[in-house]
């Protein structure tokens, strides 16, 4: 009875979470120009259009470039802070951590207006660096959380032992700390990468003109209504998301990386 209830609950939730994905994927294989669901004349024609259109492909690749660079920059900000908190319990680092958390939780519409004004005020407008930096700062709370977890999972006894055996700080860093924290750094990178792909409004406001990422291109295409080609991009992002997180799960221990304990 309880088991049946649990299965029903999980099943309904799974359908709930999967439904929009099914809709988006279904529309992308629509044979006609319209956003029909269920798809009429299923065909992959829009995938062909997407991959052969240099404008869509350049928007797609730009999204990827921005996402990768934003992830790297974001981790470059998070790592020193997490290290400073763990090793030195630095108050400054804790303040920066709070600042990072606040940035993440601010309404994105407010943030994007503010960023627009900011970049205009310093006269550095419409450039790809603006988008990358803006994304990196907004999402930095996530790698901060995961890398912080990574540092906290380091068993102090290991470090004690290493020191007793004569290891220098740099050795300890390299041989003890780095292997333990590295998977958490990777999962932090993946989080920022995935979120940066789909969040459009910041990029739109900051550099929507010269740097046309995929979500922005989707919006620019709204003049003539939604089109199935938009959903092709969405499906590709979805597949990327599944692939990225599956890779993390395959290489690392996903439950552990998310802060849980590993169950084997």
């Amino acid at each position: 009875m309880k088991a049946a209830g649990k299965i029903l609950f999980l099943g309904l939730l799974a359908i709930f979470m999967a439904a929009p994905l099914v809709v988006v994927a279904g529309v992308s294989i629509n044979g006609t120009q319209r956003m029909n669901f269920p798809p009429q004349d299923p065909s992959f024609v829009w995938y062909g259009t997407f991959f052969s259109d240099p404008a869509w492909m350049s928007a797609f690749s730009l999204s990827l470039i921005v996402a990768v660079l934003a992830a790297l920059v974001s981790v470059s900000i998070a790592l020193p802070i997490a290290y400073a908190i763990w090793k030195y319990k630095s108050r400054l680092a804790l303040i920066l951590e709070s600042l990072a958390r606040i940035s993440f939780l601010l309404p994105s519409i407010v943030l994007s207006i503010v960023f627009l004004v900011f970049w205009s005020a310093i006269g550095h407008v419409g450039r790809i660096e603006d988008t990358i930096l803006s994304h990196a700062v907004v999402f930095v709370a996530l790698p901060l959380a995961t890398i912080g977890m990574g540092f906290r999972s380091v068993d102090m006894a290991l470090i004690e032992v290493a020191r007793t055996m004569g290891a220098r700080e740099s050795d300890v860093l390299r041989t003890v700390i780095r292997p333990i924290v590295l998977p958490y750094i990777v999962s932090g990178l993946v989080f920022v990468f995935i979120l940066s792909l789909n969040v459009y409004i910041i990029a739109y406001m900051v550099a929507g003109f010269e740097v046309e990422t995929l979500p922005i291109k989707v919006f620019n295409n709204l003049r003539m209504g939604f089109q199935p080609t938009m959903c092709v991009g969405a499906v590709l992002f979805m597949l990327l998301g599944v692939f990225a997180f599956s890779a993390v799960a395959a290489i690392g221990d996903l439950p552990k990386l998310l802060g849980g304990v590993s169950r084997r």
Binding site: N198, M238, G241, S246
Partner: peptide, 20 residues
Amino acid sequence: WLVFLLATLSLSDVLIAFSW
């Protein structure tokens, strides 16, 4: 389940709203 939930983060809120 975890990969499934995390993968939904890769969809833009605009497309989710449209799906709804």
